[in-house]
Amino acid sequence: MTLRLRADVSTADTDYGTVLLDGADGRYWQLNASASLTLRTLLDGGTVDEAVRRLTGTYAVGPDRAREDVERLLTRLRDARLVRP
């Protein structure tokens, strides 16, 4: 299932990663480069496995650690109600 941002969340790329603006409550969130790569992969329809492959293909990180980190980021995005359930 493709990850989707909530309708009132907009994104902006920066030199450091991505900023998410929650138009509903005015909060904005900064994602670093690896979080941006992960989010972009998932929003483009990629699976968690694909996000892990992108991380391990770009950064010096093993697949187990990368998977933990992808899952943790997904939890953070859901807890912040930035993505659709």
Partner: peptide, 22 residues
Amino acid sequence: DSRELQAYEAPEMFEAGSFAED
């Protein structure tokens, strides 16, 4: 296959501020 991997920083997301406050 000799592409250098970048140093890894775990994916991080933090609240950077409030549009309302700013």
